[in-house]
């Protein structure tokens, strides 16, 4: 394989990573890392550095569309980011104190549970959502025009304090294990906080960019972001995210939910594998 062929193949794989990552709100690292290490001969350190750049790229490229279509709940995203960023710092400081094998198994099991729960969830209105004065005060409730339902979909945000706690844990995990927190934030917002699935993935997508950019900056300063590897990844991921961002608005709610269930299942398998066999 020549460098030119390698670049083209990596860019093509990255398009699919950006597409899936932007639709699911998780960034696409779960495709980039295995593809680069298992197929393209890159060592794990440079693959992780490239994948975290890919997460920043997915987030920023898709977010400009999602924010414009009002699918992103900026206020909710900003609020939860405080907890995630704090968690990431705690995680970085606590790294090495906890067994990462055990954490991988624990969170792999949690993901399996979330995937099962989400695959049974129906968009059945919000009658089960308790009122939340804290969310009222910060005016977190929002609405967006859903192109598949052809109507304005308004929703009330609930369980904000639980949301802050889980976001803190998601940040902690991403600091400890180096995995993106998006995989936990989407089920949190959708299943617990009453946010419709598209708004949940769009808001998660918005949030992960800021956490990932910190990680990416650290790798960048260390010199782990190789231009030859990161360039095709970034180009492909940006193209894929733009396509994904155009598609999400018009997709059926159940299709988005099922796509996310698949992503969660893949991530759960990866985590359990790392916990049990490495």
């Amino acid at each position: 394989m020549t460098p030119l062929e390698w670049t083209i193949i990596v860019a093509a794989i990255s398009v699919s990573a950006g597409l899936l990552g932007s639709l699911a709100g998780v960034g696409g690292g779960i495709i980039v890392v295995p593809a680069l290490t298992l197929l393209m001969g890159v060592d794990i350190r440079h693959a992780i550095a490239a994948s975290i750049v890919a997460v920043v790229a997915t987030s920023s490229a898709a977010a400009s569309t999602y924010v414009r279509e009002r699918m992103t709940n900026i206020r909710l995203g900003m609020l939860l980011e405080t907890a995630t960023a704090l968690g990431a710092i705690c995680g970085a400081l606590a790294a090495g104190l906890l067994s990462s094998k055990l954490l991988y198994i624990l969170f792999g099991v949690i993901l399996c549970y979330n995937a099962w729960h989400m695959s049974h969830k129906r968009e059945d209105g919000q009658h089960t959502i308790p009122p939340d004065p804290f969310a009222d005060k910060l005016s977190l409730h929002a609405s967006y025009y859903d192109r598949s339902l052809k109507r304005e979909l308004s929703y009330r945000v609930s369980r904000t304090k639980l949301g802050l706690l889980v976001s803190w844990i998601a940040g902690l995990v991403s600091g400890l294990l180096g995995v993106g927190g998006g995989i936990f934030k989407v089920p949190l917002m959708h299943l617990a906080m009453g946010v419709p699935i598209k708004a949940a993935t769009a808001t998660s997508n918005f949030m992960i960019g800021i956490t990932a950019s910190t990680g990416a900056a650290i790798y960048f300063m260390r010199g782990d972001v190789k231009p030859f590897i990161a360039a095709p990844v970034a180009i492909g991921v940006i193209a894929g995210s733009k396509i994904g961002a155009r598609l999400l608005g018009g997709m059926k709610l159940n299709a988005v939910r099922m796509a996310f269930v698949v992503v969660m299942a893949v991530a759960a398998v990866q985590m359990l594998y790392k916990g049990l066999f490495r």
Binding site: V53, S60, G209, S213, F220, P227, F228, A230
Partner: peptide, 18 residues
């Protein structure tokens, strides 16, 4: 290579700008 690095740096700093 230097132009790519500048582009990657800009990409990484975009979320902080927002």
């Amino acid at each position: 290579a230097a132009i790519i690095v500048a582009g990657l740096g800009l990409l990484i700093s975009t979320p902080l700008m927002r």
